[in-house]
Design a protein around this nucleic acid. Structure first.
Lengths: 136, 136
DNA sequence: TTCCTTGCAAAACTTTTGCATTAAA
DNA sequence: TTTAATGCAAAAGTTTTGCAAGGAA
């Protein structure tokens, strides 16, 4: 069984992304579990584990990954972008008091009616965010 | 019949917001129709019509209006906030090629299944964005 | 060698804040 | 007259970019 790093390396190569040291480390952090991380969190995590990576490389790499469908960029609050390691279709809970994002699997949401897209357009995706507040 | 400005003034007062000249002008621009505008667009519109308003006042006023439920702030793309003059519940189409936002009335979407909110929380709101791309 | 990637710093953008001035009640 | 709102500039936070240096093929 190969370690997680080398599996990340393989995934990058499979996408046509050259698996440099920095890219593999960024992929390893984000893809190690289904999670939502900001660019700064990823940078801090890498720096904390002694990696030499620049902020610019983190941002550029995340954009690169997202453009290749390896991760998904979320616009949940206006403050910053969140990067989701889960690229399968799914939705989100957004806890307004903690800021936490929680995945909602597709089967837990069913639309019995959706509007027809305007003429000349088609649906590229559906983003659903269920905002949560503390009860009472 | 009163003009639109004085109706805006009345709406501000009804919310407990002191209707100063700048606030009434900002409200007049945004509330004149159901629309989605950015802070910069509102500032440009006001400056273009000869109004004396500062950028800080536009931002602060939009936050004030949103906190009183007079307008709604949207997080559709990461780039900037959009302010929606329609505060009735509704959803959005987001045209990815033009950036345009189009309202989707509530009756055009029906959920036949939604996940239960996690223990201790309740649903504060549902944001649905249907992304559109050009057909073919 | 040649091309691509990285790091750093600076720039670009959006939004917020501090504070003196001005306007509203 | 007293309190609140405004304008300006500066600051803050996130993200992008230019460019020289470094690394991979």
């Amino acid at each position: 069984m190969l370690n997680f790093d080398s599996r990340c390396e393989t995934r990058l190569s499979a996408c046509g992304i050259r698996p440099t040291a920095q890219r593999v480390r960024i992929a390893t952090v984000l893809l190690s579990a289904p999670q939502h991380l900001s660019a700064e969190q990823i940078l801090a995590s890498l720096r904390g584990s002694g990696a030499r990576v620049s902020k610019a490389t983190v941002y550029n790499t995340l954009n690169l990954f997202a453009s290749h469908g390896l991760i998904r960029q979320l616009s949940v609050d206006g403050a910053r972008a969140w990067f989701d390691s889960n690229v399968d279709p799914h939705y989100h809970f957004h806890d307004l008091s903690s800021g936490a994002l929680i995945d909602v699997p597709v089967p837990e949401v069913e639309f019995s009616r959706l509007p027809a897209p305007p003429p000349g357009t088609e649906v590229a995706g559906i983003d659903l965010v269920i905002r949560l507040r503390k009860k009472q």
